[in-house]
Amino acid sequence: MPTLAVLTAAGSGTRLGMDVPKALVELDGLPLVVHAARRLCSSGVVDAIVVTAPPDLVDHVGAMLRDDPGVDRPVRAVAGSGTRQASVAAGLRAGLAGADAAPGSGPVDVVLVHDAARPLAPPSLVRRVVEAVRAGHAAVVPGLPVTDTVKRVDPTDPDDPVGAERVTGTVDRSVLRAVQTPQGFDRALLERAHAVAEHRAGDEAVAATDDAGLVEDLGHDVHVVPGDPAAVKITTRHDLRVAELTLQESR
């Protein structure tokens, strides 16, 4: 049965300091969203992609992906919304409606949610996530072990002259994982998670920062599979330079 990928690309990328939305910032001559879409397609386990784009760039982003020779799956672009949660919900609705209506494809049963801000997530990682969902884990996220020592603090003294915070303990990092995307879900579970949390979607202060969090709020188990260092999120110009180096090394 088909797998749908929702690719989020509607963010402004303010911290990158560019004059274009983050997903259209170029890495090695190609926009980040193109890198991400190519790798989803190269995985061999994605059947259709819906990309969420800034409202005034929906047609541009959709045409760019459909015209790219490395994107060989059906692509639909829709307008993103004010929060990531709302954007994913919009992409999910549009993508499922389009994929389910496609002749001869059957209904979608697995949904991936991926960020264009992680453009170098390799095809092997995409396959690993989908395989875990199809093996019976209805919510799957890739993650890497946390290597830094992590302290728990008590930030209750805003008047400290140097902004110091009192340490209350050291967290056991062996049970911590830094989560990446794509995240994979059983279609029905993800639809239910978004429906239950719809009232939060429009408020950045309470909206979910990832879809696994919505599933956790339902009381449903989420499983972690090994992530990949290449799937780093691009937030700053330094991250962009690191991604450029990663591409060079891969060659």
Rank of each mutant, 00 (worst) to 15 (best):
A5E: 12
L7N: 06
R15P: 00
V20F: 11
L24E: 15
V25S: 07
E26P: 00
L27H: 11
L27N: 09
L30P: 01
L30K: 15
P31F: 15
P31Y: 13
L32T: 13
L32K: 08
H35V: 02
R38P: 00
R39H: 15
C41T: 15
C41R: 10
S43M: 03
G44Q: 11
D47N: 13
I49F: 12
P54E: 15
P54V: 10
D56C: 03
D56K: 06
V58K: 10
D59G: 04
A63M: 09
R66F: 12
R73A: 14
V78A: 03
T83Q: 12
A86Q: 13
A89F: 04
A89G: 07
L92C: 01
L96Q: 01
G98Y: 10
G98S: 12
G98E: 13
A101D: 08
A101C: 02
P103F: 13
S105P: 00
V108L: 01
V108K: 05
V110F: 13
V110C: 04
V111I: 12
V111C: 04
L112I: 04
D115Y: 10
A121K: 08
A121G: 13
P122V: 14
P123K: 09
L125Q: 15
R127G: 04
E131D: 14
E131F: 01
V133S: 03
R134Y: 08
A138W: 10
A139T: 02
V140Q: 05
P142K: 12
G143L: 01
V146C: 01
V150D: 07
V153D: 05
T156Q: 07
D160Y: 06
V162C: 09
G163H: 08
R166C: 01
T168D: 09
G169W: 15
T170I: 15
T170D: 08
D172V: 02
Q180S: 02
L190Q: 03
E191Y: 11
A193M: 02
H194T: 03
A195M: 04
A195P: 01
A197D: 13
E198Q: 08
E198P: 00
H199Y: 10
H199T: 05
A207V: 08
D210R: 14
G213K: 05
L218F: 13
G219P: 06
G227E: 04
D228I: 03
P229N: 08
A230V: 00
A231N: 04
V232I: 10
R237L: 11
R237W: 13
D239V: 01
R241C: 00
V242G: 00
E244S: 05
L245T: 06
T246V: 08
